[in-house]
Simulated scan of single mutants.
Amino acid sequence: MPHLLDSAKIKLFSETIPAIVEQEIAPGKRGRVKCIGKYWPASLYPPSCHIIFSPGEPVLVVGMEKMTLLIRPFASTP
């Protein structure tokens, strides 16, 4: 079942933060990233994104929902 984001609990950051995928992240499937030296659960943002990220890929953190980081492709524009 796809993860539905609760827009009331989403905090988007004013600047993106680089991270590295540690566990595969796919549509509807949370994974894990390493960001600022720590491991975090992560989901795609926006949820309509249809990309699969593999371990070792660079991504950008754009926000947070509870304790889950929200990521997008490193090369995409805001």
Rank of each mutant, 00 (worst) to 15 (best):
Pro2Ala: 14
Pro2Asn: 15
Pro2Tyr: 14
His3Ala: 09
Leu4Arg: 14
Asp6Pro: 01
Asp6Gln: 10
Asp6Cys: 09
Ser7Leu: 07
Ala8Leu: 11
Ala8Val: 10
Ala8Cys: 00
Lys11Met: 09
Leu12Asn: 03
Leu12Phe: 11
Ser14Glu: 14
Glu15Trp: 02
Glu15Phe: 11
Thr16Leu: 01
Ala19Arg: 02
Ala19Thr: 08
Glu22Cys: 04
Gln23Val: 12
Glu24Trp: 05
Ala26Cys: 01
Ala26Asp: 04
Lys29Asn: 13
Lys29Phe: 09
Gly31Gln: 10
Arg32Phe: 08
Arg32Lys: 06
Arg32Gly: 00
Val33Tyr: 13
Lys34His: 07
Lys34Thr: 11
Gly37Gln: 01
Lys38Asn: 08
Tyr39Cys: 10
Tyr39Met: 10
Tyr39Ala: 11
Trp40Ile: 01
Ser43Ala: 15
Leu44Asp: 02
Leu44Lys: 05
Tyr45His: 07
Tyr45Val: 04
Pro47Gly: 12
Pro47Ile: 15
Cys49Pro: 00
Cys49Asp: 12
His50Arg: 15
His50Lys: 15
His50Trp: 09
Ile51Ser: 09
Ser54Gln: 02
Pro55Ile: 09
Gly56Trp: 10
Gly56Ile: 06
Gly56Pro: 01
Gly56Val: 11
Val59Glu: 10
Leu60Glu: 07
Val61Tyr: 11
Val62Trp: 13
Val62Phe: 11
Gly63Gln: 13
Met64His: 12
Glu65Pro: 09
Lys66Trp: 06
Lys66Met: 13
Met67Ala: 07
Met67Phe: 11
Met67Glu: 14
Thr68Glu: 07
Leu69Gly: 00
Leu70Val: 02
Pro73Asn: 06
Phe74Met: 07
Phe74Cys: 03
Phe74Trp: 11
Thr77Ala: 02
Thr77Gly: 00
